[in-house]
């Protein structure tokens, strides 16, 4: 085998390796990228029912309800970005750091009726830490500016949502959950 053909072999192997890596990456990107959405975005433009998205925001105070379907525990809670709230349904154990009034990220799919089925709920290890994407969404919604200190607590988030503001106008505030 000549030196030239050996070099050709090597070049071919490199091209095949990198080519398949690129092809795999591109095909995986088209189907496996998960977009982050704030509750108001999900309300405004619901994603396709089979599309996995990350929903992030604050857990509305007093919104956590629990049910048991068969033997499986189901948690329902509302996540808000100050503009709108989305009800999340999650089968499983909520993480230790999950708190009402604190930031949370739920990964799952949105059904057309507006409910969100989470396959995973993340609360960060550090309780003072807010996921960057949640902070960004809250800041954009104009309800919180990180320059003026920590995020306001649960109760005020609750009343800040548009939905609740409307409710307030309509009648006495309704309590969530038990």
């Amino acid at each position: 085998m000549t030196r030239k053909s050996r070099r050709l072999w090597l070049a071919c192997a490199c091209l095949i390796g990198l080519g398949s890596a690129t092809a795999l990456t591109l095909s995986a990107f088209s189907s496996n990228i998960v977009f982050f959405m704030a509750p108001s975005q999900i309300r405004a433009k619901p994603p396709a029912p089979d599309r996995t998205v990350r929903l992030g925001g604050m857990v509305v105070a007093g919104s956590v309800r629990r049910q048991t379907v068969g033997d499986t525990p189901v948690a329902l809670f509302d996540v808000t970005d100050g503009q709108a709230a989305v009800t999340v349904r999650y089968e499983g154990i909520l993480p230790d750091l999950f708190r009402e009034g604190q930031s949370v990220v739920a990964i799952g799919t949105a059904s057309p009726d507006g409910a969100f089925r989470a396959s995973e709920v993340l609360a960060k290890h550090d309780e003072t830490y807010m996921p960057k994407e949640v902070a960004e969404a809250l800041r954009r919604s104009g309800k919180w500016d990180p320059r003026y200190g920590k995020a306001p607590d649960a109760a005020s988030w609750d009343t800040m949502t548009v939905r609740n503001a409307r409710k307030d106008a309509a009648g006495p505030q309704q309590q969530h959950g038990s």
Binding site: L24, S27, S31, N32, F36
Partner: peptide, 17 residues
């Protein structure tokens, strides 16, 4: 744009290689 890439992506790319 805030996106994330998780296990499905890595499973689909790293494993075949």
């Amino acid at each position: 744009r805030t996106i994330s890439v998780g296990k499905p992506f890595f499973d689909a790319t790293a494993a075949p290689l």
